[in-house]
């Protein structure tokens, strides 16, 4: 089996400061990988390098494209990379306002990616939008409402629907449950888990919440000061952490 994403020695520097360094891993189809670490550990920098939002200073990010197999997304042309960004890739921002068009209705938000890849039948677009709103548990009669009339949890679910409507294969998530109430988080996690399995999605989830990765991620990567300090099966890393920093991280979680 070939990996869907193969990351090789990726590094990003901010002047003399290390954003992330020497990051390598393979992600296989259907796998969900969590990246944990404290603020400033380089996990968001890494995610943005992988998703093409930042240009890494070194390394390769190979993606198994549908048409041409493994391609380095760092060196591919910008139109190709942007095309991936609205077809095979999805990016779920922590802040829904960064991932939604706030002045466009919920239906328009979900339909945008469809129209971006050439859908030109209003009825079909609307039908798919209704279907996707249902899958993220937003009532169909909210389809013409604007996101600013939605609660935080609904906005986040709308952002997910907007991203998944074109059937991407790889989803990048940056703290998808950050800033939400605990009960809303649980609902979102459950939803994400279901969608990931149903659609056979691969995902990379950046978070500092260990409970989130335990529920969503198959594998875990622990970062500190821009370096990967430990990787492995999620439950193994959390239950039998090997690195000093991971042990500290795990033991620092407050028990409920």
């Amino acid at each position: 089996m070939t990996p869907l994403l193969s990351v090789q020695n990726v590094a990003k520097y901010y002047g003399s400061r290390v954003g992330c360094e020497e990051v390598s891993f393979d992600l296989y189809p259907g796998e969900v990988m969590g990246i944990v670490g404290e603020s400033g550990s380089g996990k968001s920098t890494l995610l943005n390098c992988l998703a093409g939002h930042l240009a890494p200073d070194a390394g390769k990010v190979l993606f198994d494209t549908r048409a041409n197999g493994m391609q380095d997304t760092v060196t591919m042309s910008e139109p190709e990379r942007r095309m991936l960004g609205r077809t095979d890739w999805a990016f779920v921002h922590q802040n829904a306002r960064d991932g939604l068009r706030m002045s466009v209705s919920a239906g328009g938000n979900v339909g945008e990616r469809l129209m971006a890849v050439g859908a030109r039948h209003y009825g079909d677009i609307r039908e798919q939008a209704v279907d996707w709103l249902g899958r993220v548990e937003i009532a169909a009669d909210r389809i013409d409402d604007r996101p600013r009339q939605f609660s935080g949890g609904m906005q986040q679910r709308l952002q997910i629907a907007r991203n998944l409507v074109t059937g991407p294969r790889l989803v990048f998530m940056d703290e998808p449950t950050g800033g939400l109430d605990v009960s809303v988080q649980a609902r979102l996690l459950d939803l994400l888990r279901g969608l990931v399995r149903e659609m056979g999605l691969s995902a990379i989830i950046v978070t500092h919440d260990l409970a989130v990765v335990r529920l969503l991620a198959d594998r875990l990567m622990v970062m500190k000061s821009g370096q990967v300090v430990e990787t492995g099966l999620t439950d193994q890393v959390l239950d039998d952490p090997q690195h000093a920093y991971t042990q500290l991280l795990v033991s620092s979680v407050l028990q409920v």
Binding site: E78, P79, R82, R86, R101, V104, S105, G107, G108, G111, E112, R113, L114, M115, A116, V117, R120, Y122, I125, R126, I143, D144
Partner: peptide
């Protein structure tokens, strides 16, 4: 530059929806 014109149809979609 990249002929990414999906957004123009979003505007027309919003018209019909409203």
């Amino acid at each position: 530059a990249l002929e990414e014109y999906g957004l123009m149809h979003v505007k027309l979609y919003e018209d019909i929806a409203q």
